[in-house]
């Protein structure tokens, strides 16, 4: 399973969206549509840290990085790269 699919599966299960992960579009706005609120963002960040062995800087925990499955995936991709370089 690709990373974005794993992220989608987590989102669908964690927030009880009641749909198949594939139905969650890459660009579905998770914030505007009330799937993730600011508190849920924190639990999502800690899941990402565990799942992808990241140490996410609090300064990066801004809503726009987590607006869609695609942006979360891109954020993780960047974080993973930084971690390897660092």
């Amino acid at each position: 399973m690709s990373r974005i699919d794993a992220i989608k599966r987590h989102l669908v299960e964690e927030y009880e969206l009641g749909t198949a992960p594939a139905e969650l579009a890459d660009d579905y706005d998770l914030l505007r549509n009330g799937v993730i609120d600011s508190l849920a963002l924190l639990t999502l960040v800690s899941w990402l840290e565990n799942e992808y062995a990241l140490d996410i800087d609090a300064a990066d925990v801004v809503p726009d990085n987590f607006r869609t499955a695609a942006s979360i995936d891109a954020f993780v991709a960047a974080a993973v790269t930084t971690a390897k370089v660092g």
Partner: peptide
């Protein structure tokens, strides 16, 4: 599904109301 219905109500409600 819930995703499409969320989009519908998001247009009418404050986020806390979703």
């Amino acid at each position: 599904n819930s995703l499409r219905l969320r989009e519908h109500v998001a247009a009418e409600l404050p986020r806390a109301g979703i």
